[in-house]
Nucleic acid binder design. Structure first.
Lengths: 189, 189
DNA sequence: CAAGAATGAGTGCCTACTCACTCTTTTATA
DNA sequence: TATAAAAGAGTGAGTAGGCACTCATTCTTG
């Protein structure tokens, strides 16, 4: 019956928070986040009840964004290796294209302010992908491991690869290739 | 000529900081760190000029401790695979035995308060180990990569493995074994 | 006794969050 | 269609609490 909350402003807050959390960590001030989004501090608290809620929402938003990116033009019919490679490439491309999201995710991932519930909800966005990786475990080097372990390794390798790409962007394709080769060798005995 | 600074107290501060940074992140208050170490806050600043200096020293201390642990009873004459495995096992054992150090290192590693100089100095403690890993690259899957990349992957895999061991300690030996197998497969084509 | 380590109340700054007020949009009414 | 009322979004100065760091003083040791 009155003015509705604006999706645009919510997004502006999240975008501003992404950049600031990436560079300053979770101690980035709400006043700065609001100002960089072009809003007053009070408005931020109309959209998010507390800073913790903002951080958790941001975490979920970024995880969902990554999950969606990983499955872009997924070749359902291709071989397991090609499907894994596709998801790997999407991960690397996403991280290289949105370095702030990647860095913010890194900060949020180790923060004690992100609840267990958020973490589980965030991982849920990767159900299909974990299933795919698990498929590759049937007779590989991680045989008998939980699929979460393989997923964790996949993510850790991708993040490490992105870290090195960030340090030397010219070698991007080289690292991308080498990282996947390592993963596939590791997984497939 | 007067009372000397006490190594014991310095260590108590670092130990207290380890536990608090591990659980609360780098925003752990200096007052709390000092109190948990059994000292007044002022004393903390007699040993470390600022909180940033404390965090950087802590980072270096933990890195040095890990570096030393990795080379414990290093079998110089063994095969490359056995030497890699030895370092791997030492890493996992260290992380499982000192979870607070591991978690604190994780927090400090992503903190913007750790200087580039500290990071380089910290990595210097791993010179021998990186050299060993590089040796394994000669004809492996990461051929042509910087030795830092292989070292980064080694560390990322070990940390991921420790994360899963922390979640389910009964599976410790299983994860330890699976993680190394993955690494060795990945590196050796 | 002199040097300086130990102390903890004090200081100024920064923080997340509030609230009284204004402004904008939606809806009910004539 | 014009108007008015209701709901609630937007604002930013204000508040209380927490922070790193200081310093006058007291205590300990060479």
């Amino acid at each position: 019956m009155a003015r509705p909350l604006s999706e645009e402003k919510r997004d502006a807050i999240l975008a501003s928070a992404t950049a600031l959390v990436a560079t300053l960590g979770t101690s980035a001030a709400t006043a700065k986040i609001a100002r960089d989004a072009g809003l007053s501090e009070g408005t931020l608290f109309n959209y998010f009840a507390s800073k913790d809620e903002l951080l958790n929402q941001l975490y979920l938003e970024i995880k969902a964004d990554l999950g969606k990116a990983l499955l872009m033009s997924y070749p359902s019919q291709a071989s397991l290796r090609e499907r894994c490679r596709h998801v790997w490439n999407n991960f690397i491309d996403w991280g290289a294209e949105y370095p702030m999201k990647r860095k913010a995710m890194r900060q949020l991932g180790v923060s004690e302010r992100i609840t267990e519930q958020s973490r589980q909800q965030g991982n849920a966005a990767f159900g299909d992908i974990n299933a795919m990786i698990e498929e590759s475990l049937v007779d590989g080097g991680l045989k008998g491991c939980s699929m979460n372990f393989a997923g964790g390794i996949f993510e850790a390798l991708a993040e490490t690869t992105l870290e090195f790409i960030a340090q030397d962007p010219r070698q991007r394709e080289h690292y991308k290739q080498a990282g996947f080769t390592f993963f596939w060798n590791g997984i497939s005995k």
